[in-house]
Design a protein around this nucleic acid. Structure first.
Length: 122
DNA sequence: GTTGTGACTTTTT
DNA sequence: GAAAAAGCCACAA
């Protein structure tokens, strides 16, 4: 093997990293762009997190719909997806209130993958 | 290699 | 609560 380059890339690419996180989002949960960027190792690259998702839409099976902004609101409205995302989340059990979802209870973190309580919480 | 833009975030007014 | 500005990083032309 030898290879000159590093045996394993510490940063498998922002693109791959974000997809890996999105793919881990359980049903009924959501994540924010800032979170993906932060967990991906690039705090502040929240914009890029969204740009990356836009590249997979239509060619990926990832639950990109579970990714929303820090305001608990979907951003796909300006992109041209309409209320499709909001509707998809509702179908998963996410309650939307006035066009916003309760991040306080629906925001998911990778450490919760062990015990994701679909509990009513409310 | 440079420029421009964007599914964002955060703070301030 | 809503609006505006600045900051941030990655991808496309």
């Amino acid at each position: 093997m030898t290879s000159s380059g590093p045996p394993t890339d510490p940063t498998p690419g922002f693109h791959e990293r974000v997809l890996a996180l999105v793919a881990r989002i359980p049903e009924g949960r959501v994540m924010t762009y800032g979170q993906l960027a932060l967990l991906a190792g690039n705090p502040g690259a929240a914009r890029q997190a969204g740009f990356v998702l836009n590249s997979l839409v239509g060619g990926s099976d990832l639950p990109w719909q579970r990714v929303i902004n820090a305001q608990g609101r979907v951003s796909t409205h300006k992109v041209g997806f309409g209320d499709m995302q909001e509707r998809l989340l509702m179908a998963e059990g996410v309650e939307f209130r006035d066009g916003r979802c309760d991040l306080a209870t629906r925001q998911w973190w990778p450490d919760e993958d062990r015990a994701a309580p679909p509990a009513p919480l409310l």
